[in-house]
């Protein structure tokens, strides 16, 4: 079995292990504090999921009982009857569309900003980041009127606004990616006979792919989790998963349905996050199945 050395873990004579560096050597007390903090953080993240998981398979769970008094899948059935599946599908499509538009736009803006091809770069960066600072309500209330007057279809209007909301994340992520990107790779490819298109496809995109994946993930989340814009601009015509969760959570006695819907809302981002961890590395390690390279220290032929 060939073990690949992931990108960035080049073994060089000056070993990068923290253990060998005096200043970074872990102290016993520090380790205890670190473990306790990490455990608390994990608990804080995981705890809310426990009642959700239990509720999703409980038909009845009256107050004093520690565990549900009646187990069952009524919650799931009701959710499906109430159109959870199409809402799930609409959410997916909306989130993917937001990611598909906001990621390349963010990448283009970030590249132009990084290469210094933009006049008044600070102002432009500020405008691109503005949606983060502006309360969503403020922007949406004004824009709803404009978009409705312009007779933009509700679904399209939602998409446009969500793309704007996702842009700060994609621009910021891609700026980080381009700051680490070396244009000399592209120049080298050009002298080797690669056209602009080939450079984009075979050099530029593969090199920034991890950044693109991260940016797309964030943009997906913006589209996936939006409530305010979908309610106000969509006006109820576009029923997405968050809308369904919202409406059931507002009622009483729907805990099982809300639990099922909430859990299903966690699944796509979780899967994407796992995929990101697996494939979003700068170096696609799994592609090279070959003999384990003999490690000679840098400097020897």
């Amino acid at each position: 079995m060939a073990m690949m050395i992931p990108y960035g873990q080049r073994i060089t004579p000056d070993t990068r292990e923290t253990r060998s560096r005096g200043l970074m050597r872990p102290r016993p007390l520090g380790r205890v504090v670190r473990v306790v903090l990490a455990s608390l953080l994990a608990l804080w993240f995981a705890l809310p999921l426990v009642p959700l998981l239990v509720w999703s398979v409980a038909n009845r769970w009256s107050f004093p009982a520690v565990l549900p008094t009646e187990w069952g899948l009524d919650g799931l059935m009701t959710a499906l009857e109430q159109g959870a599946a199409p809402a799930f599908g609409r959410s997916i499509v909306l989130a993917l569309a937001v990611a598909a538009i906001a990621t390349p736009l963010g990448a283009l803006a970030a590249r132009a900003l990084t290469l210094g091809r933009v006049p008044a770069p600070r102002l432009v960066s500020g405008i691109l980041l503005a949606p983060l600072a502006l309360p969503a309500f403020v922007a949406v209330m004004g824009l709803t009127i404009v978009l409705l007057r312009a007779r933009v279809p509700a679904a399209l209007a939602v998409l446009l606004l969500l793309v704007a909301a996702a842009l700060p994340y994609t621009v910021y992520t891609m700026r980080v990616a381009y700051a680490a990107h070396d244009l000399a790779f592209e120049e080298e490819a050009r002298t080797l006979g690669a056209s602009r298109w080939h450079v984009l496809w075979r050099v530029h995109l593969p090199l920034v792919a991890p950044g693109l994946a991260r940016a797309a993930f964030l943009a997906f989340l913006v589209g996936w989790s939006d409530y305010v814009v979908t309610v106000l601009v969509g006006g109820g015509t576009l029923v997405t998963l968050p809308l369904l969760v919202g409406s059931y959570a507002a009622g009483v006695g729907n805990d099982a349905i809300v639990a099922v819907l909430s859990l299903s809302a966690i699944i796509p981002p979780l899967l994407l996050l796992l995929a990101l961890g697996r494939f979003g590395r700068r170096y696609p390690a799994a592609r090279f199945a070959g003999p384990t390279p003999s490690r000679s220290p840098k400097g020897s032929p």
């Binding site: 490819a189 002298t191 080797l192 090279f288 070959g290």
Partner: peptide, 27 residues
């Protein structure tokens, strides 16, 4: 540049990290 029939080697090797050694040479 790609139509001049030149090839350049820089001070840094600039090997494409997403390609194997062979695919770099085959670029």
């Amino acid at each position: 540049p790609e139509r001049r029939g030149m090839a350049m080697v820089f001070q840094r090797p600039l090997l494409f990290p997403h390609l194997s050694v062979l695919d770099n040479v085959a670029f």
